[in-house]
Amino acid sequence: MRLLNTLLPTPARSLLLFVVWLLLNNSIAPIHLLVAALLALVIPQLTVSFRDPQPPIRRWGLAVRYIARVLIDIVLANLQVIQLVLGPNKNLRPGFVLVPLSMTEALPLTILAGTVSLTPGTVSAEILPYQLDATSSAPKYLLLHVLDLQNEAELVASIKQRYEQPLKEIFQC
């Protein structure tokens, strides 16, 4: 077990490298399997010292369900964007919204900001306050630009409940 840990410091990343290499070559010939395995072993070893430690995914089932939900939301978001874009400009009610967050880790925050950008009517603009050290646990805020701001409290509540809550459970943070 100890040996496995030193050989594969980040198993998920190694698996990703392996799969991406095979997809790039679009074959599972032995030589490609060999090169993929070599890369999956060597690249994490070389880069492990560059990376800040991130919380691992604790609940894989929930993570898969989260991805499925986001994919559905992307399609729904686009139907909404079609309506807004094709309608007259004076019907638009854009606005900025500040969402208070209860997470502090970098990886879940990044995923949350990315999800919010891809889903209904919102683009994440900034995570406030900026902080360079990952250890500080000051409360964070997400600044959003919303294309059609109907009900601010409802929007904030839905983002927190729909995306932040599952992420907190997935990473247990």
């Binding site: 854009p94 900025f96 500040l98 900034e126 406030l128 701001l149």
Partner: peptide, 24 residues
């Protein structure tokens, strides 16, 4: 931003917010 954008004050407050003080 366009005229009827709501909460434009957030843009002005952003620099201040970024420094970590005066979080509304």
């Amino acid at each position: 931003p366009m005229l009827n954008t709501r909460h434009q004050d957030l843009m002005k407050q952003r620099d201040n917010l970024a420094k970590g003080n005066d979080l509304p």
